[in-house]
């Protein structure tokens, strides 16, 4: 219950911080793209709208996850509100988990509203409900990826400054899209040690391509052509997200628990 109370407060705080203003930007993007794309492209207008919509959901979500995530703990420390909170019978793990769930809920609300906007735009272009439903697995995978980004930002937020945390999270997010190349690089260089190092890094670093590529196909691309996404691929991506996310939250809790606030 205490976790939920912290989560609720984090969500309220995010709303007060005008996080949802990004929805206006998204709405404008959808309206402008609806009007302009017909002039710029040859056919496939709805495909471009899906690409633009889903990519925007992912990009805006990632920016929120990074920039709000890094301040989740540091802001409490800066304002010294954490002292008052931890003086109460609240465990440190509850604080971290509550913060994570609060931002995750903010992101979910954001993603749900943006998806509704995207579907509305597509409906205006004559896309049927059946095709729109095919977008949902892609939206779900984007949400999973955002959850992992939030957890990553939270880890850095527990021990580093906001600027450095943002930098670390962003770099890991970028590297997380090149994990497959890391293995290829290990195979190219004829050194057993280097290959082992690459393998270790492959498993240790977050693999964001698990959420963006399923069955060798880009998830947003599949959604843009209204192709079904393999449910087993989605299930394994969920499993990966849960396992890696738990690991990150564990690290965040461990670091925060050992932190001395004196």
């Amino acid at each position: 219950m205490r976790v939920l109370a912290i989560a609720r407060n984090t969500f309220r705080e995010n709303i007060r911080d005008k996080v949802l203003y990004n929805l206006v930007l998204f709405a404008l993007l959808m309206i402008v793209s609806s009007l302009a794309l017909g002039q710029l492209t040859l056919g496939h207008t709805d495909k471009v709208i899906v690409d633009l919509g889903l990519s925007s959901i992912s990009m805006i979500g990632t920016l929120i996850a990074i920039f709000i995530g890094i301040s989740l703990v540091s802001k409490e420390l800066e304002r010294r509100t954490v002292y008052a909170l931890l003086a109460k019978p609240v465990h440190r793990w509850e604080f971290i988990l509550g913060k994570f769930l609060g931002l995750a809920f903010t992101l979910t609300v954001n993603v749900v509203i943006m998806t509704a906007g995207l579907i509305l735009t597509l409906a205006c272009h004559g896309v049927g409900a059946g095709s729109c439903l095919r977008l949902l697995p892609a939206v779900y995978l984007i949400l999973l990826s955002l959850g992992l980004t939030t957890a990553l930002a939270l880890v850095f937020s527990t021990f580093s400054t906001p600027a450095l945390s943002a930098l670390f999270t962003f770099f890991l997010w970028v590297i997380g899209h090149f994990n497959g190349d890391l293995l290829e690089l290990g195979r190219l260089v004829e050194s057993a040690v280097f290959l082992r190092l690459c393998r270790v890094l492959y498993y240790v670093l977050p693999n964001f391509s698990n959420f963006s590529v399923i069955d060798s196909r880009n998830v947003i691309q599949s959604a843009a052509y209204y192709r079904p996404i393999d449910p087993w691929g989605v299930a394994w991506a969920t499993a990966y997200g849960l396992v890696y996310g738990s690991l990150l939250l564990g690290i965040a809790i461990a670091v925060f628990s050992r932190r001395d606030f004196k």
Partner: peptide, 19 residues
């Protein structure tokens, strides 16, 4: 490689650039 998962959007951008 540099599309960072946004291949589809980047493809649209390049298709529009081609047009």
């Amino acid at each position: 490689a540099l599309a960072l998962g946004y291949n589809s959007l980047l493809a649209d951008v390049y298709w529009m650039r081609s047009i």
